[in-house]
Each structure stands twice: as structure tokens, then as C-alpha cells.
């Protein structure tokens, strides 16, 4: 049974199992996302997609919240805009994002969100952690300096490739994306070198070897295509 709700005052109808994010997208309303990726399950981690729902005293992640009949959703209030900018600034300050020398410069979701939220500078102290780059794999590389810990690579590897080579080590700001039991990527025996993690990565953290500044373009759409192809047997788009 379809549900009727309003998003930013606009009346929208949606399937009852749809999330607010999906319903909004069908209605051409854009909600910023970072940890969401079509084709992967949602984890509600980045908090960029938080929306206000009338009657709820908490902000709700659009990517994991199901629509309800009569819901009144606001996706772009001043308060939300301020929070989103703060979140993006926190990410830029957390690790070493030097767009000027980054493989993803110009094709980076984080960089694009910086523009979308109107970030002209970062208010917080840059933390400058000392992090490594793993170039041990013959075709791919991982630069922890650019990783925002969205776990899209973890989920792509687990859910689409079924390898579960990648996971998160440690907690808090010390979290680190690792392969197998924290070994160099090139030594992983479970990695199939399929490259799905690289496709999934929103930033310059995962890249094809040999890419130089601004050359790394991620094929994120391919993952949604793969999922649709497998689950719904849709092979042509």
C-alpha cells in the first residue's frame, strides 16, 4: 500500500518499505549522503542525511528511516544545513585532505559536499595524524590520509563480492580500514582483486595504481547496476 507524506511541503507518495531517502529521490528532492551507496545496505553512519520529521524530537537519518503515512519531513532547514557543514568540516580536519595533490581531486564526493554545504574554510584545528599509504597490491592503492571511514568499501567487499577482506580495526578516531588481519593488501589471500571497493570509495582513499592527481574517477554506479542485475535480473540499463 503506498504511503503519502510531505517532504519540504511537497506532497509525495512512496512505497511502504521505502526509506525517506528513496522517496525524496523519486520526487527529485536531493538529500546529501556520504555513507549511503546504491547497491549496499545502509548503516546510518555519516549523519549527512539527517532530516527533521514533525513530531519527532530526534533528527532521523533519511537513509535508514522508513516512510510513514502522513509524515511531514523537512530536509533542508537552516539547522540541518549548519549541522551538515559542521560534519563536513570535522572530516576535513580529521585526516590529511590535500585536494591539490589528491588522485580524486575534482571527482570526490567529500570535496563536492564541501562545496554543497558552503564550506569556505574549516573552523576546527586540523589534526594531522600520521597515516600510511598501502601500495602493496599490484593494481590498487589505499591512502589512509583520505579515508573518511564510511565503510562503503567494507560493505561492497562483503555484500557484493562476498569476500569480506576488508574491515575496520580499532575504534574512535584510531579506526583504520584493514585487510584480513591487518596485513598489507598485496598479501591478502581473500582479496579477489575485483576492484569493487575502489569503485565504492567516495574519496581518494582507494585508487587504481598509476593514477595521478585528479585522475581517479570512481565507477560508483556500477555497483548499483551489479546489485540490480543479480537481484532483479536487469542486465541492460
Amino acid at each position: 500500500m503506498p504511503r503519502t507524506l510531505t517532504i519540504n511541503g511537497q506532497e509525495v507518495s512512496a512505497g511502504n518499505e521505502q526509506t525517506i531517502l528513496e522517496a525524496a529521490r523519486d520526487a527529485n528532492i536531493r538529500i546529501p549522503t556520504l555513507c549511503h551507496l546504491d547497491g549496499l545496505t545502509d548503516v546510518g553512519a555519516c549523519r549527512m542525511c539527517l532530516v527533521e520529521v514533525v513530531g519527532s524530537n530526534k533528527l532521523l537519518p533519511a537513509c535508514t528511516t522508513r516512510v510513514q503515512e502522513g509524515m511531514e519531513v523537512h530536509t533542508d532547514t537552516e539547522r540541518l544545513r549548519a549541522y551538515r557543514r559542521q560534519i563536513i568540516e570535522l572530516l576535513f580536519a580529521e585526516r590529511n585532505h590535500v585536494c591539490a595533490v589528491c588522485v580524486a581531486n575534482g571527482h570526490c564526493e567529500l570535496q563536492n559536499l564541501g562545496i554543497a554545504v558552503g564550506m569556505d574554510h574549516v573552523r576546527y584545528d586540523y589534526l594531522f595524524p600520521r597515516l600510511g599509504v598501502d601500495l602493496s597490491h599490484e593494481r590498487f592503492g589505499m591512502d589512509h590520509n583520505r579515508c573518511i571511514l564510511c565503510t562503503r568499501c567494507v560493505r561492497a567487499c562483503d555484500q557484493l563480492e562476498g569476500a569480506h577482506t576488508i574491515d575496520v580495526l580499532g575504534r574512535g578516531a584510531r579506526s583504520l580500514i584493514v585487510r584480513d588481519m591487518n596485513i598489507p593488501w598485496g598479501e591478502s589471500t581473500t582479496c579477489t582483486s575485483c576492484g569493487k571497493c575502489v569503485m565504492a570509495c567516495p574519496t581518494g582513499a582507494l585508487f587504481k595504481q598509476g593514477s595521478t592527481v585528479a585522475e581517479m574517477v570512481h565507477d560508483v554506479e556500477k555497483l548499483a547496476f551489479l546489485r540490480a542485475a543479480r537481484e532483479r535480473k536487469v542486465w541492460n540499463v
Binding site: Q86, A93, L149, R171, G172
Partner: peptide, 21 residues
């Protein structure tokens, strides 16, 4: 809280570090 944050969501993972700072 900074030490015990699981690191999954950005506001807590990085916000606590900045507040502590």
C-alpha cells in the same frame, strides 16, 4: 568518551576529539 567512541558516526568520532582539544 573520545577514547570509547566506536568511530562509526562522524559527529561523535571526530567531534569528541575536537571538544577535548
Amino acid at each position: 568518551c573520545m577514547d570509547e567512541s566506536c568511530g562509526k558516526c562522524i559527529p561523535c568520532r571526530v567531534g569528541t576529539v575536537q571538544m577535548h582539544r
